[in-house]
Amino acid sequence: MKPHPARTGALLAGAMLMLVLTACGQAKLSDRQPNRSRPHHDGGFTIGLLLPSRQATRWQQFDRPLINSRVHALCRTCTVRYVAGGADAAAQQRQAQSLLSSGIDVLIIGSVDSRAARPAVREAAAAQVPVIAYDQLAEGPISGYVSFSGKQVGKLQGKALLKALGPEAPRRSIVMLNGSPNDPNSSDFKNGALSVLRGRVKIAKEYDVLNWNPSIAYTDMAAAISAVGPDRIDGVYAANDGLAFGAVAAMKASSIRPLPPVTGQDADLDAVRRIITGEQYMTVYKSFSREARAAAEMAVALGRGKSIADIATGTVSNSSLQDIPSVVLEPVALTASDIETVIKDGVYTTDQICTPEFRSACARAGLLG
């Protein structure tokens, strides 16, 4: 019996519709499901490492070598393929595509912009390359996340600033230099700080500093000095050490003496020296070795097709997924009386901190015995 043309057409149309619906369902699913890796067992494989090109010196000085070292300790035949992340999201997207095209098996990404990282994460998912979001929670179907508690960072900064201002804090005025608006960590830092500062000190001016740029922080601080007055700024909340540098430079250019207490984050070497000399009141020290170690262990486990549940200490969620395995670490406040912490942890040596220019300040801080 010859098939009826109309029935045949209907069957074909139905089959095409099912294919389209299936494809759409798979497209939606790709943004809801974590990346799955191809099993590698104990053989070698390649881990792509893409870190941001921000002003902080930590990425090249600490994170990259620490991750590389831990990966090779766990897997001697593994390769870490590093690309210095672009200064903007578009450049980082191109670099992520380049890494994926090169045939990596796992991707660790410290994203410049968490939302803009979604296409790269989706492409990795399509290629069955699991993604670990490093230091910043990227959007899309990531497999793991490693960072520090952003709200706790802000709380430590806020508490330190209030302590420095003393009992007169309710009558004092501060300037807030918050992190970049395209970094979701920035809102955690700010909210953590405001949970301590709001109602306990007057916030005279507040700025969100794009791309964590110290030059922009300098400009914003100069604008605050002009608007508020050089003698009416009693403290500066700077979300990281780069912004603290910009704030201090702007105040010194305006001949503000003595400098008011300034917060920071990352324990950059220059910031540690500023703390010793009294130009910066505090920074937040984050053990990069613990963060790098957790990311490397996740990457090696995923590259071998294994679960990272025993590495994770909890879970987080982004707009695509819930219950993402995570390691969220606790930061530490660092003032002049705590500088030995970074020496004991092997971050810096006394000689690195106490160069001839800073030896007298180091002696006053008790670092030279």
Rank of each mutant, 00 (worst) to 15 (best):
S226H: 15
G246Y: 01
R290F: 07
D135P: 01
V342F: 04
L165W: 06
A84R: 15
A193L: 05
D231R: 15
A295Y: 11
S187P: 01
S319L: 14
D220G: 01
P130C: 07
V106K: 10
A312I: 10
N182S: 13
R364M: 10
K155L: 01
P130K: 08
P130L: 04
S180L: 01
S101D: 15
S215G: 13
D208T: 08
Y237D: 04
L29F: 02
S53C: 09
R232L: 04
G85H: 03
L334Q: 11
Y207S: 08
A363L: 11
R32K: 14
L29D: 07
Y134S: 02
A296M: 06
T313V: 09
M298K: 05
R359H: 05
L259Y: 02
R290Q: 14
I67G: 00
T57R: 08
S255Q: 08
A117V: 08
N178W: 10
D234G: 06
G9A: 14
E206T: 13
K205C: 06
S111N: 15
A23E: 11
G140L: 00
P119N: 12
T341R: 13
K159A: 06
L367I: 13
V262E: 02
R94G: 03
D234L: 04
A295H: 14
L368M: 12
R64C: 00
I308Q: 05
I353C: 01
V20L: 12
H4N: 15
Y348G: 09
D113I: 13
D270M: 11
S326D: 10
R198S: 12
A249L: 09
M221F: 07
D63E: 07
A361L: 06
I132V: 15
N318V: 12
H41Y: 13
P184Y: 03
Y285R: 10
I256T: 02
A336Q: 15
G158V: 07
S98M: 09
V112L: 08
G166R: 09
G25E: 08
A126F: 13
L161G: 02
F148P: 06
K190R: 08
G9L: 15
L156E: 05
R54L: 04
E279M: 00
V106Q: 11
Q136A: 09
T341E: 09
G48E: 08
T77I: 02
N211P: 12
S180H: 02
R172H: 09
L194D: 14
R81N: 09
G110W: 03
K205D: 15
T335Y: 13
A27Y: 04
S114R: 09
Y207N: 06
K2E: 07
Q136F: 04
D234Y: 07
G242P: 00
S186F: 02
I256F: 01
E168D: 14
K163Y: 02
I343D: 07
D105G: 10
A164K: 10
E357S: 12
I109K: 10
